[in-house]
Amino acid sequence: MTLKIAGKTFSSRLFLGTGKFPSNEILSKALAAAETEIVTVALRRVDLDAKNEDILDAIDKKKYLVLPNTSGARDADEAVRLARLAKGMGIGNWIKLEVTPDPNYLLPDPIETLKAAEILVKEGFIVLPYINADPVLAKRLEEAGCATVMPLGSPIGSHQGIRTKEAIEIIIEQANIPVVVDAGIGAPSHAALAMEMGADAVLVNTAIAIASDPIKMAEAFKLAVMAGRKAFSVGIRGSQKTASASSPLTGFLR
């Protein structure tokens, strides 16, 4: 029951975002409680020259894969510049590609995302793009060489859950790369649902970061993701709306 991305194996299927936490200490404890292995960090928050504590100080690089993200980028050029910066800083060559020209709902720009993905893949990055739940775009990004696609359930921080269920189901059905449901997951039940649907992983940030007890909530998400995945692996029987006939319709075929 392991997750494989770009040749790397992970036993956790819960990615964590690191923004919005009340302190580095709580962040670091929440990461441990979630038993996550992939942690995304906004490059705009990273300051290697920080006078005070930096966000990277909260993340044990030996324990977690740091997945820098390009939050703040409005177009492909800006995203590419940030990705190169991350590489230059020695954070590695994995990049969560976020191109969100609208600062209000932070919805991703499909055209610029594809453009940036094509450039970054060519430069040797492992690209994990954040996208709207658009099955065609997901295929285009897969063809461009992305390592995963990360469709949104609903806008970032909205806690509305999986509002794009039908489209995500198509993305999962058609994908040859892992599908990570990102954004909008406000409760463990939302995460469980995504996993039951067959998502390979989910990314959670706000729901844990602003909970009154982020550490306990991180653990709740861990359990929900595991439960959802287990149920998916067993196979959830669809609900039946009609009663089953007592005498079989095909009984004559003997």
Partner: peptide, 23 residues
């Protein structure tokens, strides 16, 4: 001021942008 922010249960943030974006 940072200490007061922490006491309220918030994190004081000094960097939430990157000059690479504005280059």
């Amino acid at each position: 001021v940072s200490q007061a922010i922490k006491l309220k249960g918030y994190e004081p943030v000094f960097k939430d942008w990157d000059k690479a974006l504005t280059q």
